[in-house]
């Protein structure tokens, strides 16, 4: 059986979660590897939650919020950006490929961008193989 990665997507309620809703409503298709966690703002996602996801067996983490300037909470998304940038070298140091963590700005009207992001990210993580923290490999 080929490797099917498990990807956690932290999506902000106002833009990216709505964008994913729009993708569904428009019947756009993407691989089912993405598992979406709703947060009010992408700025809520901190190192703790990212580590919890890795420890629970995630092979990839997508953090997605409103485009800069469009944040429902004015500038919360910029915190997400800083955290993701700061997290990458840290991941590398502990032996996790930094490509397993991705930040994308997905607006409420960007269903297509959501689907394209999930497709390409799933492909990236598939090529990387299972995360070294993923002890529970298996189906979806």
């Amino acid at each position: 059986m080929s490797f099917e990665p498990k990807i956690v997507g932290f999506l902000c309620n106002w833009c990216s979660y709505a964008g994913a809703d729009l993708a569904g409503v428009s019947r756009l298709r993407c691989p089912p590897n993405i598992r979406i966690i709703r947060v009010m703002c992408s700025g809520r996602v901190n190192e703790l939650l990212m580590f919890k996801a890795l420890a629970a067996g995630a092979d990839g983490i997508l953090v997605s919020g409103c485009h800069p300037g469009d944040c429902h909470y004015i500038k919360g998304n910029l915190n997400a950006r800083r955290r993701v940038v700061g997290m990458k070298p840290f991941l590398e140091a502990i032996g996790i490929e930094p490509e397993r963590l991705r930040l994308e700005w997905i607006g409420a009207s960007e269903g297509l961008k959501f689907v394209e992001t999930v497709k390409s990210f799933t492909q990236t993580v598939k090529e990387l193989g299972p995360s070294r923290f993923n002890r529970r490999q298996g189906g979806y």
Partner: peptide, 28 residues
């Protein structure tokens, strides 16, 4: 928004309805 809860180094801030325990339970 929960930005403060995410940033608090002492974990003193609780983001109600989106607590670390709740989100972690969902992730797991």
């Amino acid at each position: 928004c929960g930005v403060c809860a995410a940033a608090c180094p002492s974990s003193a801030i609780t983001h109600n309805y989106f607590t670390a325990e709740e989100i972690t339970a969902e992730i797991e």
